[in-house]
Design a protein around this nucleic acid. Structure first.
Lengths: 152, 152
DNA sequence: ACTGAAACCTACGAGGT
DNA sequence: ACCTCGTAGGTTTCAGT
């Protein structure tokens, strides 16, 4: 992993469909050299996935909220997680150290659909304490971490 | 936007480098038809970006934390935001309704680098109240919302 | 939406700097 | 580890139906 690889990764983050020939012209490297580096980067697993980010607004999902919650006991964990995994509007779930056990990121249409969603979650067996935080606007969202260039 | 488009979007979410010909064979549509749909989907802006997600672990970023904070007054906002935007380890920033003004998602190497990061943020002019929540593990991370299929 | 042909991109050599 | 060149195979694109 040198700075050339990092440049390639950054170009892929900007547009994961860039062709090897376009990368080649941007970083002054021949196409086969770029192609080899791409293969190696894929093999190392540093690229977790090639994906697309969809516009929440265009899909009429205008509400983003964070929800903290705790479980009464760890025995509810497995059932809780499988319900979380199946719900496409719950886009993130992290296990926490602190006052609450979990934080969820939920993206949904409206206050009405949010209300239903909150009820649904609060009715999952074992869910005890919850706290809901509404996001008014998103200042920054990088989706992935960005590799740091190596200084000389 | 019909269910065929949604299938295409889901395939792209699984792998944004799938070729039109591969999509074509999976959804029983000719390659030019897929290609046209792709163009239209691009034009509508429903696809926010084609990108790659990098492995945090492979980049030695093992710590993920959420940080809440408030500003003393809105006049600090612009300077605060520009500092946030420049920091690659701050991957998200949302403006909130509630006890705190902002929530940040921070991904960093170690407790040492986290300590520095927290100090840095607390020293931004106007930052008043902060609360830090450490994530122990990630149960789910979809990066993007998933389109819902239309029922008949 | 489909077919078919031209243009483009990629993958994989060999041989060399 | 990289470059050039050439070739083969796959992919995209544009016309016409």
């Amino acid at each position: 992993m040198d700075n050339i690889d990092i440049k390639i990764l950054k170009l892929l983050q900007q547009n994961s469909r860039v062709t090897a020939s376009e990368i080649s012209s941007r970083i002054n490297l021949s196409v086969p050299a770029v192609s080899e580096r791409l293969k190696k980067l894929d093999a190392t697993g540093i690229i977790e996935k090639y994906t697309i980010i969809l516009s929440a607004k265009k899909l009429n999902k205008r509400l983003m909220i964070m929800m903290f919650l705790s479980l009464e006991s760890p025995k509810f964990k497995d059932a809780f997680i499988s319900i979380i995994q199946l719900d496409d509007e719950i886009v993130e779930c992290h296990y926490l150290a602190g006052d609450y056990d979990y934080i969820l990121k939920i993206i949904t249409e409206s206050t009405e659909s949010l209300e239903k969603k909150l009820l649904k979650i609060k009715n999952i067996p074992g869910v005890r304490k919850t706290k809901t935080i509404v996001s008014l606007s998103t200042i920054k969202n990088n989706y992935s971490i960005i590799p740091t260039e190596i200084k000389n």
